[in-house]
């Protein structure tokens, strides 16, 4: 059973259009790249599922796209605040691949810095919708960056083991065998609510239990 703990906020840094939320790690296990955590969103009923972006010693970092009331509340946290964090949850990426290539789209780049560290910085491609969003690539030194109207699929080389996270059309365009981290609205994160079911390959899958990382058919 994963831990649930109240963690103090070290700070929130603006990274382009996103916010990097830095928390004291406490006794929480950072888990495997691609696993996620449920973060209490102040003032909201439900926590928010976020994958771990970076895990420097004694901290946990989450990249937040403030698009709704919950993610905005997370992005507006201040040093000294504290929130409950539950995790790690779900299944992360399989790291035993011979030729990894990391592919991220928009806020889908969130789990890739931690994944890049675990895989000793393999090649990576990041796509963003604006230059301002693309400033987040600073978290992935060495990554190739494309901005709309160029898509990551336009520059995707062959012959790699793709590990990807991004919007659904991007994931649908990834080659068979790619490891894809999916996203869905989630209430609980631990298999209780059946809310995060997504139709993948004609089957409904509970992303929090069977994912969020699934292998493309």
């Amino acid at each position: 059973m994963p831990r649930r703990e109240r963690l103090s906020v070290v700070g929130v840094e603006r990274v382009g259009e996103y916010a990097l939320l830095r928390l004291v790690r406490g006794a929480i296990d950072p888990g495997l790249p691609g696993q996620f955590f449920m973060l209490e969103a102040p003032g909201r009923v439900l926590p928010r599922p976020l994958s771990l972006c970076l895990a420097p010693s004694s901290e946990l970092h989450f990249l937040v796209d403030p698009i709704g009331p919950g993610t905005t509340a997370l992005a507006e946290l201040e040093r000294g605040d504290a929130i409950h964090v539950y995790g790690p949850l779900g299944n992360g990426y399989d790291l035993t691949v011979p030729r990894p290539l990391l592919v991220g789209g928009g806020i889908g780049m969130a789990p890739l810095p931690y994944l890049a560290e675990a895989l000793r910085f393999p090649p990576a491609i990041l796509g963003f919708r604006t230059e301002r969003h693309a400033e987040a690539a600073v978290l992935m030194p060495g990554a190739e960056v494309v901005v709309d109207p160029v898509f990551v699929t336009d520059v995707l080389p062959h012959g790699y083991d793709v590990l990807a996270c991004g919007p659904e059309p991007m994931l649908q365009a990834m080659p068979a065998g790619a490891q894809l981290a999916w996203e869905a609205p989630m209430a609980c994160g631990y298999g209780a609510c059946y809310g995060c079911a997504v139709a993948i390959g004609g089957e409904l899958k509970r992303l929090c239990v069977e994912g969020p990382v699934l292998v493309a058919a």
């Binding site: 009923v45 009331p69 919950g70 209430a187 997504v198």
Partner: peptide
């Protein structure tokens, strides 16, 4: 199998589900 996703949405002081 249940309803098609999305199946949940947060509201101001609660949530909706259509599992």
């Amino acid at each position: 199998e249940g309803n098609a996703p999305p199946r949940i949405a947060e509201t101001a002081h609660g949530m909706l589900n259509a599992i």
